[in-house]
């Protein structure tokens, strides 16, 4: 083997000192490398919003279905509950043979997780509508469809929006795992060295990524809360997790 190339590759003398080398919490490094989190953050938002949107669409349709045919509530709760209890890491392994790597698998799994939360909250919201209000509307001559869209759904809004809040924050946390299914999002920055962010054991990295996730959740939470206050100023009812 020729000795030439060895001489040209700089072997640096590292003593293992310095914040970054010791995997500490390094504000300088964070300031310099914050841009590495930007695109993944956008991808993360995309994964979250798409998954929750699709999940909402499905859950809403199922809820309307179960509203007409009450006996469906139990079975739908069962199925969505079962999907919810399959842990995410396990879910990716189960899905990978079928849907392959990439964002699709991630979105399928994330949608499945939101279904229970959203279905349960929409259904509970509809059930909690005071029967007097429905009776009054019927007395005014409204058709069932009008009652649904003009009375029941508006009155169910707080519960529905509460479910939306929970679905959003839960999905933001879970979406980091999309990386393991070959998808995008903040997962790559958190878990691998490929993004130049130091991987899972670099404290600065974990703090930044975690903070971004929390910030994202706070923003989405506030947005929904604001929408709720705007749309329904007369209601300030709490709903559950």
């Amino acid at each position: 083997m020729s000795a030439g190339p060895l001489a040209q590759i700089q072997i640096r003398d590292r003593t293992g000192e310095g914040c970054v080398a010791e995997n500490g919490f390094c504000p300088d490094w964070i300031a310099e490398n914050l841009d590495k989190y930007w695109t993944p953050l956008l991808e993360h938002v995309y994964l979250t919003v798409v998954s929750v949107a699709i999940g909402f669409g499905i859950a809403f349709s199922l809820a309307l279905l179960a509203h007409r045919r009450r006996w469906l509530t139990g079975p739908i709760l069962g199925v969505t509950g079962a999907l919810y209890t399959v842990p995410s890491i396990a879910a990716f392994f189960l899905l990978l043979p079928i849907t392959g790597r990439g964002n699709t698998t991630a979105i399928v799994a994330l949608v499945a997780y939101t279904l229970l939360i959203l279905f349960r909250n929409i259904t509970t919201g509809l059930r909690n509508v005071p029967p007097d209000a429905v009776d009054a509307a019927r007395g005014m001559g409204m058709t069932p469809r009008q009652i649904l869209w003009k009375v029941e759904l508006p009155l169910a809004m707080p519960e529905i929006l509460a479910g939306l809040r929970i679905a959003l924050t839960t999905t933001i946390g879970l979406a980091t795992l999309a990386f393991f299914a070959g998808g995008g999002g903040l997962g790559e920055q958190i878990y691998s060295e490929k993004a130049g962010t130091g991987g899972l054991f670099f404290k600065s990295n974990v703090v930044v990524a975690g903070s971004l996730a929390v910030a994202l959740a706070a923003v989405s939470d506030l947005l929904v809360l604001a929408a709720q206050r705007l749309a329904l100023p007369w209601r300030r009812t709490l709903r559950t997790a």
Partner: peptide, 16 residues
Amino acid sequence: VMQELNSRVTIDKQEP
């Protein structure tokens, strides 16, 4: 050499 390259990623936190 490989150790040096690995160091640049794992210790210096550069992009591969």
